[in-house]
Design a protein around this nucleic acid. Structure first.
Lengths: 317, 317
DNA sequence: CGCTCTACTGGTAGCGCTAACATTTGTCAA
DNA sequence: TTGACAAATGTTAGCGCTACCAGTAGAGCG
């Protein structure tokens, strides 16, 4: 018992015992068995993180933030990949909950009803990331994809483009909200043309960006600006324009979404909507840790916002 | 006991009991407690995966393969991020081993002596990935970075370039072996010039590729071809050339490494060395699963090879 | 000196499961 | 009907910890 206490509440053990215990631990190379700890204590130090993709740069950045914040804390991160499938997400939530995690970080606000029920009745704290709404399961940190797409579209119109189009892939709920934002603003300006909206359920790649651009150009050659639902598509679209000798931004303006590092380095530099992915992961983890240590509710919903970063690719000459 | 058996060895339980048990499990929403299973059985279904970065595209692809192979199997993947630090790696190995994992997938062959000792004495099966050598800890799957860089350099020379340079960032052991391969072949052809080798310890980004290219051009403007130690640098270098109006491949040939998807989509399409990252992750996981189920050694070292993909960016006119 | 109080240490049960062995039930041949 | 054997099911102990409570030692006080 004293050894157990020495490891968890060292301030309640005498200095003498503490040093003896530590010496023996070092000599034997003792490591506590987390399974036994979990079983006896009825809880773990596991923070489950469920994201829809481990490959996508966006979630890679979020994960980096989560790992950075978990670093040097007693919390251990465990990653689950739902592959954009609500069913897979439900399965993952069940698996995680059976481990009695201390907390859960889960992407998005579109969980299935059963998943929501499971999460609500579980004793663990939850942070939803990537989006915001006024109905958090528990805590929430993200930004409005609708507003971000609206702002980006307004930027295109403000630059003087009058025939805007949209390239979209992998229409997950967030992507759809972005498309809705685009439609909103374009329609309000009387500039919405459905044939300038090209989407596909396939996963985003740079190559796909080129293909969608080619498709758009054949269907609506008058298009003078595009909002892409992510930066991979934007880069692919730029390359396609270069291949065809179409001047960017002279003939067509291109705006991406997420502002990956390469957007600033491209030639021309590509305008994009900066989202705070790393910070989102880091703060989600910190919110969870704070809630678990203090058991006080803290700020339940955090809006990290976004910024439209205007670069050459949307600079109408 | 019959319930426990029904879950693990259903063929040893009568059909009648099995259906009753399954009905009750479904009704109660019962999920086994993995901590109790681990404690009682003295082993887990956890496969630990230790990679040096969760952000890097290369490891993201490897992880995707690992997760794909773990899918629908009884193995559960747990990810650890060593952030290119041997000390952090050692800490992670200890943490993982305390969980009695069934297996471990670990990147590279440059573990510290203590890490190697820990791994050797542990009862769990191990697959080293990313590289090959003739001294596997247990199993191994990867390719020779030295040979890959040699082949890429030979390609540049075969295309008629005579003043080759090298751009390198984040000089981890694999990167250094690539640089060694470049030096080898360039020196053998009498074309090695140290001032055409520009490296930095910073992490690779597209922006950094541009900066290194600018640096190289100021130090060795005669350079007519570069091998980049990864594709981010190659893309950045291409953009920098475009900004300066330097024709690629006319004036300078560019070759990347890894053949990320965007290399083929770029304009001009960028030559690169294709490495089988997804397959490496997938097969590492399968090798582990096979070894754990059969307890037979299987093929201990698998060389996945590589291919030099020749595209426009190294097409000497 | 005995009492109280605090600081520390120790004893016991049990978390939910599985390994190993024990027992019961069922089947079939003689 | 019985015995032999296989199939199915049950019993027991214990995995390595922690929660809870029970000590025990030493200090301080009147």
């Amino acid at each position: 018992m004293t050894v157990s206490r020495a490891l968890r509440e060292p301030e309640r053990v005498s200095v003498k015992s503490l040093s003896r215990i530590r010496a023996v631990i070092a000599r034997l190379g003792y490591l506590p068995d987390p399974a036994a700890q979990a079983l006896a204590a009825g809880r773990t130090n596991v923070i489950g993180v469920i994201v829809p993709s481990v490959t996508n740069n966006v979630f890679a950045d979020v994960m980096r933030g989560v790992y950075a914040a978990a670093e040097d804390s007693r919390w251990q991160v465990q990653l689950g990949n739902s592959r954009y499938s609500p069913l897979e997400e439900e399965r993952l939530v069940k698996t995680f909950l059976s481990q009695r995690p201390a907390g859960l970080i889960i992407s998005g606000i579109d969980q299935s009803d059963e998943t929501r029920a499971l999460l609500r009745t579980s004793p663990c704290r939850i942070v939803q990331i990537m989006e915001i709404s006024d109905q958090p399961l528990d805590m929430m940190i993200g930004f409005s994809h609708l507003e971000a797409a609206r702002a980006a579209t307004r930027h295109l119109l403000a630059m003087g483009y009058t025939r805007p189009g949209f390239l979209g892939a992998r229409l997950d709920p967030r992507t759809q909200r972005r498309l809705a934002g685009f439609r909103d603003v374009a329609a309000a300006a009387g500039l919405l043309e459905d044939r300038r909206i090209v989407t596909t359920p396939q996963a985003s790649t740079v190559t796909l960006g080129g293909l969608l651009m080619a498709d758009l150009l054949s269907r609506a050659p008058e298009t003078d600006a595009i909002l892409c639902n992510n930066d991979d598509l934007a880069l692919g679209a730029l390359f396609e324009c270069q291949r065809r000798g179409i001047a960017v931004p002279g003939k067509i303006g291109i705006c991406g979404f997420n502002d990956l590092e390469m957007m600033a380095a491209a030639h021309p530099a590509i305008s994009s909507v900066r989202t705070h992915r790393y910070e989102m992961g880091e703060r989600a983890m910190r919110m969870l840790a704070a809630a678990l240590d203090a058991s006080e509710p803290a700020e339940p919903v955090v809006d990290l916002g976004f910024e439209v970063v205007e670069r050459q690719s949307t600079l109408r000459p």
